[in-house]
Amino acid sequence: MTIHKEGFASIGLAGAFVLITNWLLRYFIGEIEWLTTTWLVVSLVFFFIIVQFFRKPTRITPIHPNHVIAPCDGKVVVIEEVVETEYFKGPRRQVSIFMSPINVHINWNPIAGVVNYFKYHPGKYLVAWHPKSSTENERTTTVIKAPNGVEVLFRQIAGALAKRIVWYVKEGQQVSQGSEMGFIKFGSRVDIYLPLDADIKVNLEEKTTGGITVLAHLK
């Protein structure tokens, strides 16, 4: 287990906050022992929460050309047929995964292929489970075309706490299944749009492991 590069600045700021606030309390009201001790404990818990958020586990993706793997850790909150209006402009099978603040927040490419489409959308910060978060929140849209011609679209969606979406892909790029696609800071959601004949392999409320869990089998 290591720390993801996206966390270096946040962890540094959190560490400085803990050191400075504890020094100030000790300097100005050090005689109130219970208060300084309580704040020390609270601030250290806060620091370790920030550190665990940016953990980077070692994972080996089971490569399969017909599998769509989970692009993130979290819980499946939506499985339904919808009309995707940005790229496909037609019916698709949507699978949505909610990422809580305690999940690993790295995003992985669900299939191998070429990035046919990518777009960043500025937007709101509704809670990630809000129905309109997929279309109104800050988000990215990525479409990967597999070697057999099948296309899979997925969106990184910011939540009420997520204030920064990071991505490592661009149009025309060749990506491998299970490689890092990006990172979302502090609570969010990822939507995946699949062909209607895709065989869904997960259920509602099921927990997913990014880069490992098989979401669907493509026909």
Score class of each variant (00 low, 15 high):
residue 47 F to Y: 15
residue 171 E to C: 01
residue 151 E to P: 01
residue 114 V to T: 00
residue 121 H to T: 08
residue 122 P to H: 12
residue 144 I to K: 00
residue 186 F to V: 04
residue 16 A to F: 13
residue 118 F to A: 02
residue 19 L to D: 07
residue 105 H to P: 11
residue 189 R to K: 08
residue 26 R to Y: 09
residue 159 G to R: 05
residue 23 W to G: 07
residue 216 A to F: 08
residue 92 R to W: 03
residue 40 L to E: 08
residue 110 P to Q: 02
residue 126 L to C: 10
residue 199 D to R: 11
residue 10 S to E: 10
residue 111 I to Q: 00
residue 192 I to M: 09
residue 203 N to Y: 12
residue 119 K to I: 04
residue 206 E to W: 04
residue 35 L to H: 11
residue 108 W to T: 06
residue 1 M to W: 07
residue 69 I to C: 00
residue 47 F to D: 05
residue 125 Y to T: 08
residue 98 F to I: 02
residue 87 Y to M: 05
residue 162 A to H: 00
residue 210 G to E: 05
residue 114 V to P: 00
residue 29 I to Y: 06
residue 196 L to Y: 05
residue 162 A to G: 04
residue 143 V to K: 00
residue 152 V to R: 05
residue 74 G to M: 08
residue 80 E to N: 12
residue 113 G to N: 01
residue 109 N to L: 14
residue 174 Q to L: 11
residue 103 N to C: 13
residue 146 A to E: 01
residue 157 I to P: 01
residue 44 L to Q: 05
residue 81 E to L: 05
residue 57 P to C: 03
residue 130 H to P: 02
residue 31 E to Q: 13
residue 212 I to N: 01
residue 41 V to I: 14
residue 117 Y to F: 14
residue 71 P to M: 11
residue 124 K to L: 13
residue 27 Y to T: 08
residue 147 P to M: 00
residue 66 N to M: 07
residue 127 V to Y: 08
residue 122 P to L: 07
residue 200 I to M: 09
residue 60 I to R: 07
residue 28 F to R: 10
residue 199 D to L: 09
residue 193 Y to M: 12
residue 75 K to R: 10
residue 35 L to C: 06
residue 212 I to V: 14
residue 142 T to E: 01
residue 171 E to Q: 15
residue 113 G to S: 02
residue 208 T to K: 01
residue 33 E to M: 07
residue 116 N to D: 14
residue 176 S to H: 11
residue 32 I to A: 13
residue 172 G to Q: 02
residue 13 L to T: 03
residue 162 A to W: 00
residue 93 R to Q: 15
residue 7 G to F: 14
residue 213 T to E: 07
residue 105 H to K: 09
residue 41 V to W: 06
residue 22 N to Q: 12
residue 68 V to F: 02
residue 115 V to K: 01
residue 35 L to M: 14
residue 9 A to M: 13
residue 158 A to S: 15
residue 55 R to N: 04
residue 94 Q to A: 11
residue 2 T to Y: 09
residue 16 A to I: 15
residue 139 R to T: 14
residue 37 T to M: 13
residue 31 E to W: 15
residue 141 T to V: 13
residue 51 V to T: 09
residue 34 W to R: 10
residue 90 G to L: 06
residue 41 V to F: 07
residue 190 V to M: 07
residue 191 D to F: 03
residue 205 E to V: 03
residue 188 S to K: 04
residue 151 E to I: 01
residue 88 F to K: 12
residue 56 K to C: 13
residue 67 H to Y: 10
residue 131 P to V: 06
residue 51 V to I: 15
residue 15 G to M: 12
residue 88 F to G: 06
residue 68 V to W: 01
residue 3 I to M: 10
